Simulated assay, not measured.
Amino acid sequence: MKIIGLAGWSGSGKTTLVTQLIPALVRRGLRVSTMKHAHHAFDVDEPGKDSYQHRAAGATEVMIGSGKRWALMHELRGEAEPDSLSLMQHMTPVDLLIIEGWKKEGHEKIEIHRPAHGKPLIQPEDPQVVAVACDQDLPGLPVPRLDLNDIEAVADFIVVHCGLQEKAAAQ
């Protein structure tokens, strides 16, 4: 399974780019999955649901399954937050795993950067940044600069960078 991360400061457009890239990559015949880092307590369950009651009662894991999907919720209950590599072990292998967030971890990533937001580039401090997707030119950038608004070009870069040309061409 090939992996590429999309990293950037909050509000840079990571989720927007991911949701545009997925169909562009799927049209090329690739099977794509994603992992997203949440910076705050989040819940995918709702009070009143049976699964919520199981977790509230103290279950460490609750799995829900139906004819359409299944989900596994694991309560950390004081354990340290897992890193992306640990969580990745729970993913079913696909052609490409896109990791959104986890900007400080060691996987290769494309930085999403908007100079108008006034935040510094991550790239100079992170050798794992293989390209920067930006909405304007960045003179002197030592890695490729991708046009943030050209989704097909960003998808093409990912296919080539991750060595998925044969898989994509077979479709």
Rank of each mutant, 00 (worst) to 15 (best):
16 T>H: 06
16 T>K: 04
18 V>H: 00
19 T>W: 08
19 T>G: 08
19 T>S: 15
20 Q>D: 04
20 Q>I: 01
20 Q>R: 13
21 L>P: 11
22 I>Q: 05
23 P>T: 07
24 A>Q: 01
24 A>Y: 05
26 V>F: 00
26 V>D: 06
30 L>H: 02
30 L>S: 08
31 R>S: 15
31 R>Q: 14
31 R>D: 09
32 V>G: 09
33 S>T: 15
34 T>N: 02
35 M>C: 06
36 K>G: 13
37 H>V: 00
38 A>E: 06
39 H>L: 05
41 A>D: 14
41 A>Q: 12
41 A>W: 00
41 A>S: 13
42 F>C: 06
42 F>W: 14
42 F>K: 03
44 V>Q: 14
44 V>W: 13
45 D>Q: 11
45 D>N: 09
45 D>T: 03
45 D>S: 04
45 D>Y: 02
47 P>N: 10
47 P>M: 00
47 P>I: 08
49 K>S: 05
49 K>V: 09
50 D>M: 01
50 D>G: 10
51 S>A: 11
51 S>R: 03
51 S>W: 07
52 Y>S: 03
52 Y>N: 05
53 Q>G: 05
54 H>I: 11
54 H>F: 15
54 H>C: 10
55 R>I: 07
56 A>F: 04
56 A>Q: 15
57 A>H: 15
58 G>N: 07
59 A>W: 02
60 T>C: 07
62 V>D: 08
65 G>R: 08
65 G>P: 05
67 G>A: 10
67 G>C: 03
68 K>V: 13
68 K>Q: 13
68 K>C: 06
69 R>M: 11
72 L>H: 06
72 L>Q: 13
73 M>N: 02
73 M>F: 15
73 M>G: 11
74 H>P: 06
75 E>G: 07
77 R>E: 14
77 R>K: 12
77 R>W: 04
78 G>P: 01
79 E>F: 06
80 A>D: 15
80 A>M: 01
81 E>F: 09
81 E>R: 08
82 P>W: 01
82 P>Y: 09
82 P>M: 05
83 D>G: 15
83 D>E: 13
83 D>P: 06
85 L>D: 13
85 L>A: 14
86 S>H: 09
86 S>T: 14
87 L>E: 08
87 L>Y: 00
88 M>N: 12
89 Q>C: 10
89 Q>W: 02
90 H>G: 10
90 H>S: 12
91 M>D: 12
92 T>G: 10
92 T>L: 15
92 T>A: 14
92 T>I: 10
93 P>M: 04
94 V>R: 05
94 V>Y: 07
94 V>P: 02
95 D>G: 08
96 L>M: 10
96 L>T: 01
98 I>S: 01
98 I>N: 02
98 I>M: 07
100 E>Q: 04
102 W>M: 13
103 K>L: 08
103 K>D: 00
104 K>P: 00
106 G>R: 10
109 K>Q: 03
109 K>C: 03
110 I>C: 03
111 E>V: 11
112 I>W: 00
113 H>G: 09
114 R>H: 10
114 R>M: 04
114 R>G: 02
114 R>P: 04
116 A>Q: 01
119 K>I: 01
119 K>V: 05
